[in-house]
Design a protein around this nucleic acid. Sequence first.
RNA 1: GGGAGUGCGCCGGAGUUGGAGAGCCGGGCCAGACUGUAAAUCUGGUGUCUCAGACUGAGAAGGUUCGAUUCCUUCCACUCCCA
Length: 382
Amino acid sequence: MTQTDAPPFSFALDAEDGRARAGRFTTDHGPVETPIFMPVGTAGSVKAVSPRALRADVRAQILLGNTYHLLLRPGREVLRSAGGLHRFMAWDGPILTDSGGYQVFSLAELRDLSEEGVRFQSHLDGSHHLFTPESVVDTQRDIGSDIMMVLDECPPADVSEAYARESNARTVRWAERAFARLRETEPRYGHRQALFPIVQGAVYPAVRRESAEALVALDAPGYAIGGLSVGEAAEVMYAIVEVCTERLPADRPRYLMGVGTPANLIENVARGVDLFDCVMPTRNGRNGTLFTTEGTLNIKNAKWKACWEPVDPGLDHYAAQTFTKGYLRHLTLANEPLFMEIASMQNLAFYLWLMRAMRAAIVAGRFEAWRAEWLPRVSRRL
RNA sequence: GGGAGUGCGCCGGAGUUGGAGAGCCGGGCCAGACUGUAAAUCUGGUGUCUCAGACUGAGAAGGUUCGAUUCCUUCCACUCCCA
C-alpha cells in the first residue's frame, strides 16, 4: 500500500548545461524524465489519439487533463465511480490536471471573480458553478491526478501593473488556501498527489518576483509559471520566464503552462524550464499544420498535392514513415477522420522527440551547439 | 420532324416580372490564423487590369428603349413532351 502521506515525489537533476536542466521525478504512476512535453487531454482524451498510440508512437510520459472540463462532464460522481481519471481513460501513466484557472481567462464572459473564488456559468448548459481554491483541490482529489494545480487567475497580457499586482496577490492567497485544503484531505485511490502553485504577475518583473518569492514559502514539490503566451511578444515571454526561473528553487521542477511553439520550447528549456504543455500540436494538427524535424508546414497548401515524400522521414514512428504528404493533403481536404489521428500523432511525436533531443544534448553538455543547429531548422516554414 | 421550357461565377441553388449586380446562400478551390482546448474550428479571398482605383460581365449576335439580366428577332446548347 502506498504511503499517501509521504511526499509525492522528489526531483533529481541529472545534468545542467547553462541554465538548461535534465532531471527526473517519479510519481506513483511512473517516472518522468525532464525536460518534457505533456500532450493535452482536456476532457479525458488527447483528441484523436489513443492511449496506446500515446505510449508507443508518441512516447508520451505524462498527460494533462482539465479540472473545469472534467467537473462539468462527466462530473465528480462518475469520476469517483470509475476509480479516477487514470482508469476512466485507460492511461496508467502520470497525469497532471490544470485547475480551470485558464478558463477563468478564456471564458471571461461567463464568470464573476471574487475573493472567495470564481462563479462560473457552464459553457455547455449555462448552469452555475462556484470554483474556490478548496473545491478545485477536492475535484482534483476525485480526478486522482498525480499533479494537481492550484486555482489561479490568468490575466491577459495587456493588464496594468496595478491590476497584475492585485490579481497576483489574490492568486497567492488562493494558493495558500489550496495548500491548506491539500493537508486537510486524502488521496482517494491509493496513489499520492502533488500540488503545484502558479507564479503570476503578467509582464511585470517586479510582480513576478513578488509572486515567486511568496510561493516559494509554500515549499511545494514543483512550481508553475502561468499567464504567459497570452498575446505578449515572444521576447517578453522569455524575459519573464528568466525572472521566474531565477527565483524558483533549483531542486523543484518548473512548469511553463500553455507553451508553445517548437522555438518557444527550445528557448524556455534554455532558461531553465522543465515541463510544458500546449494544445498547439493537437489543435493545429487537426487544422492542417504539421510540425516536423524539417520545419512546419500547412499540409492543405496546393504545393503538397503530388508530393510523395513521407511526412517526416527524420522521425521514427509509423505514421511519419508510412504516409505521404500528398496523401495527407487529400485526407484533410476530404475531411477524413483519419487525418486528425495521423496529424496529431505526428505533431506530438515530433514534440516529444524535440524534448528527448534537448535532454540528450543537456546530458552531453552540448546544449548550446544543439540549439544553434536545431532552432533554425524547426523554426523553418516549409 | 413538331411543341414547350431553361441558359450569368468553378459547381448547385435563390433572386432580379424595364431602373445602377462583380453580386445573395451552399459547396468546392486558394490562403491565413490557432500557445494551461467552448476549436475535425475560425477569418479572408476566389472575372480582368497599369489592382486604395478602373474595366468587362446575365449562352451568341442583333433590335426596341432615356435605360435591358428582364421585352423582341435569329442562332447555339441543354431538358421535357409528341412523332
